[in-house]
Computed example of a mutant assay.
Amino acid sequence: MHSDPEADKPIHQLLAEAVSAHKDGRLNEAERLYRHILRSDPQHPDANHNIGLIAVDVGEYLAALPYFETALSRNKKVEQFWLSYIDALIKSGDIFKARNLSLEALRSGVQSDKISSVVKKLNPSRKLEFFYKYLQHTGIFDSEPGKVVNGDLQTIPLLTNNFLNWFETQSWKSFRLLELGAGNSTIYFSNFFGSVTSYESNTEWFNNLSEKQPENVHLIFSSSIQKKLLETDLSNFEVILVDAAENRANLTRAIVTQCYNGIIFFDNSEWYRNSIKTLTQAGYIEVPFFGIKPQEDWVSCTSILGKPSNIEKILDSNWVKLPKLARMDATGSPWDIES
């Protein structure tokens, strides 16, 4: 039977060996030793803090937070404990909590140029409150896998925020939507379009949606959306959403083959430039809406495409509403009046 070589070592010796391994970049060995310390003293501040540092090093910011919190709760006089915790909160996207923690550090009596610098960074003269609210409204903090919602917990499609901001300024009640690929978008668009016809090839998605489909939605299962599309009279729809989990080049060609003259909403258009080229060569013009989506950490694009005469019909300057958080001068701007 092999004995544990660290079993009889005092904690201060284990910590010194762990720190040495950590500095040398031997992270697995360092973490093993830190965790050995925590088995004896789960609240050990240095071991908790340093495990948090290892988690940050490998991009596991959320996993680092409870370790930093424990370290700080044991010793609020260590400047680095505050700095590491605040840094991990920033990297995990929780600016609001990071800001509050930086102010708490000052109130706790920690006198440090680094802490003061962080406080200034998180509390600039131009406040970050609006940007936090903007991300919150977009759904960044409340959405979960399979559940995409805005800040009011209302179901929204996984389309770019800038597209949705524009979309809601227009009136769609007289329009009929053909949706290639069902999901959250089906529920959302049913609130705006006169009717929604949705083709879906995924059995699980279809069954889940069937249980809650609105009255103005006609949900159709098809093992091949492309085949179903070729059988459809597209003149019955003013708008088509292309967001199916199928070959989009084939879907696009099927639309062009039928000489469709309506409007196309095309998600992730930055990934499907050959499909977009097929449409533009057929006389469509593209208006791209680059933006962000809940659950995604990159900028993507949802485009609208249509023939010039039809594009004009959906770019109505008489907006039915403004996006949330937009501000309109109720008195009107004197610079907007000819003199």
Rank of each mutant, 00 (worst) to 15 (best):
E104S: 13
S3I: 13
F206H: 11
L180K: 06
D113M: 04
L106Q: 12
S235D: 11
D152Q: 08
N50H: 13
G151C: 07
S112G: 07
F131G: 02
G25Q: 10
F96S: 13
A18K: 05
Q80N: 14
P157F: 10
N123M: 06
L241W: 03
S195I: 01
Q258G: 08
E17T: 01
S117E: 15
S269R: 06
R248M: 10
I11S: 03
Y284A: 05
W319F: 15
L89F: 06
E79C: 09
S20T: 13
T302G: 06
E29W: 06
E129G: 11
A18W: 03
L14P: 01
I156S: 02
S309T: 13
K121F: 12
G181W: 03
I311C: 04
E246T: 13
I240D: 00
K324V: 09
E179H: 09
L178R: 04
L101H: 06
N236H: 12
I304Y: 10
P323A: 08
A282L: 01
E231P: 03
V118E: 08
Q226L: 15
T203Q: 14
L103S: 05
R248I: 09
K91T: 01
Q111N: 08
S102C: 04
S40Y: 07
N274A: 15
T257R: 13
V78Y: 03
K228T: 06
E204A: 10
N261Q: 15
L122A: 07
G306P: 03
G262Q: 02
N310T: 12
F237A: 01
R26C: 00
L234I: 07
K120I: 09
A88Q: 01
Y132A: 04
W205R: 14
N261M: 11
P42L: 11
S195N: 13
